[in-house]
Design a binder for these strands. Structure first.
Lengths: 163, 163
DNA sequence: TATTGTTATACTCTATAACTATA
DNA sequence: TATAGTTATAGAGTATAACAATA
């Protein structure tokens, strides 16, 4: 058995996974209630907002960690609701530029305050500032480690089980 | 804005959610590879193992946090693979007792060592013992807080948005 | 040839509602 | 009446492979 496996480690792992799931469930409901968006859809819009409101499909797919086909599916829904637009890129005509519309920004604005309040209540509710600081530090390190894998949009290049 | 929202808090939240997702993705692949089970299916079997190998459907659904209908779907798959059995309860003939078979135990045994190794590597890899202790403490507290909601198997009783 | 994005398709998972049987 | 479980069904999300267009 590799070292690192302890009762406390197991407790941390189980709690981490369950907290992630429960929190996601709460957040999903809030997204749906306040903005009629699914979890993924919110993330797509939020990621656009974080990148000046425009990104290429592939970059957006990598950012939100989805396959390009999966993003095309979500993008067509969001486009139908006029929360984003899609148009060919001027520099590279293969590429599609996704752009957040004003309606998309409004939708985010309708969701974000409640989202912040929810997380503040559910997650930070009973935690001290030093707890939060430790969590941020520790989890950021783990995330960096976990990210050491190729993005999914080029997953077809992997060599495992080509079948 | 509610207090509790800080840059560090946001960092902790985003990292928490992403770590949960990435870790789940890695773990899912390992379950599939080493035992041909999905994430949920593993959890169903593992939850049974944690309860002397037998539980009623409803209790199993609550334990794994799924609707009864969803569990019936998974149970029929697991039963077909002979990893569990289902039979009516003797005390309450409405109830179904789910029982882990030897094959089910073997399947778990084929998965668990790799699972432990994976988590030890991916999650605990670069964390100190005190980091882990803090995580266990903090996240257990949050989990307790988040669990303050009725289990999903009786979700039909809620009074919000009866529609 | 490689890359971008879309389409077609199939599959997994989940939830709702209707139903049966038992308490 | 209420509870346990199943079934039917519908919907969301994801992945794979094949494809067209462009680099």
């Amino acid at each position: 058995m590799p070292d690192g496996y302890t009762e406390e480690g197991a407790a941390a792992y189980f709690a981490l996974m369950e907290v992630g799931e429960l929190l996601k469930h709460h957040v999903e409901q809030q997204f749906r209630r306040d903005g009629g968006l699914s979890y993924v859809q919110f993330r797509v819009l939020a990621h656009l907002l974080d990148h000046d409101g425009r990104l290429r499909m592939t970059d957006l797919a990598d950012g939100v960690v989805y396959s390009r086909a999966g993003l095309t599916y979500q993008a067509s829904i969001l486009e139908k609701e006029e929360l984003i637009t899609r148009r060919p890129s001027a520099e590279d005509e293969r590429a599609t530029i996704v752009e957040l519309t004003n309606l998309g920004r409004e939708r985010l604005a309708a969701i974000i305050p409640g989202h912040v309040a929810l997380v503040a209540h559910e997650l930070f509710g009973q935690l001290s500032e030093s707890d939060i600081a430790t969590m941020a530090d520790v989890l950021t390190r783990v995330r960096t480690h976990l990210r050491t894998v190729p993005p999914r949009s080029i997953a077809s290049r992997r060599k495992t089980r080509p079948k």
